[in-house]
Simulated assay, not measured.
Amino acid sequence: MNKKFNVGFLILSMVSFLSFGQQIQMPQASPSAKIIQRVGLTDVTVDYSRPSTKGRKIFGELVPYGEVWRTGANAATVFSFSTDVTIGGQLVPAGSYALYAIPGKNDWTIIFSKNTKLWGAIGYKPAEDQLRFNVEPSKTSKKYETFEIAFNNFTDNSAVVSMKWEYARVDFKIQTDVDPIVMADIQKLVIDTQTTDPGLLFQAGSYYFTNSKDLNQAYAWVKTSTDMDPKYWTVHLRAKIEVALGMKTEALQSANKSRAMAEEAKNPDYIALNQRLIKSIK
């Protein structure tokens, strides 16, 4: 009897365990979302959940004014940065941070917390803040049924994060320090090695020209690149640098050469770019 009882109990326990371990797949009330966005040379990842209004009034009721909000739903919204960034005028070291907010009618407090393990804002402590700053909300012309985080207004080293829900919109800028990284690569791959790789020389010259660094050095690199392996886009840059250096005769020659190459390649964009450049030189 004991053996039968033990075997029966074991089987019943296994069945109960397996049944309890199974779950029915159901849609989330606030679906999870993940954004992977490159800003400058920094990878920014956002993990968050997206609640919907579903007929409810959000700010001032469902999300009270003056109280810490998880900035989404379910677990805390988490921003991760692959390099140091600047937000709200303050340095944020590379790493992961929970995003919280304190909404108000005319002013929001944005908070990045070092504690990313909380469920929503339960257990939030100001002492764990990495930074906080204030922003002014704006009113959207249309209703956003579902909470949304998006990146826009990109530059070479920054982007604006926009959070929208119901009729409220809040923006803040993420800035990255691109120049030291690029200059270190140029030093390592171009200057130290004295490379003759036309691609690397073009990249280095383009960066110097675009970022108002040493124009003569930019020209030397791009000239070597185009002498070795001319492309319509590299010769066009050479013409632009020659214009900047006051070398009009050389610039016209380069622009005409680039236009002819673009025509052969059937690239209307560079044909037009060169035509405008030639017109500006004359």
Rank of each mutant, 00 (worst) to 15 (best):
T140S: 15
F20R: 08
Y207T: 04
K139N: 13
G120E: 01
I241L: 10
T42F: 00
Y65M: 02
V63F: 05
I149S: 06
L189K: 15
L245K: 07
I241Q: 06
S254H: 05
G8D: 13
K54E: 12
R276D: 13
T45Y: 06
I122V: 08
N106Q: 08
K188D: 15
F147A: 07
A150P: 05
E148D: 14
Y207I: 08
P230E: 06
V161P: 04
F5R: 15
W119H: 05
A127F: 02
I186M: 00
G60P: 12
T45D: 03
Y232K: 01
A127R: 11
P198S: 10
E67R: 09
G72Y: 01
L62E: 14
P93W: 10
T176W: 08
K125S: 15
F20P: 00
A220S: 14
E263L: 14
Q23L: 04
L91H: 12
E250Q: 13
F59C: 06
V68C: 03
D197V: 12
Q275E: 15
K279S: 15
I11W: 13
T249S: 13
I149P: 09
A159Q: 09
K231T: 14
F59A: 04
S113K: 07
G120I: 04
V78W: 02
L252V: 03
Q253Y: 09
D269S: 07
V160K: 05
I281P: 11
A260M: 09
N211L: 01
M247C: 00
D107S: 10
A127G: 03
I110R: 01
V68L: 02
W165L: 12
M1I: 08
R56D: 10
Q194A: 15
S19L: 06
E264Q: 12
A218I: 04
I278H: 09
G205S: 07
F59V: 05
Q203R: 15
P103A: 01
I241Y: 04
N115T: 07
K279N: 15
V63E: 08
P103I: 01
L131S: 00
D179N: 13
D227A: 11
G104C: 01
S254N: 13
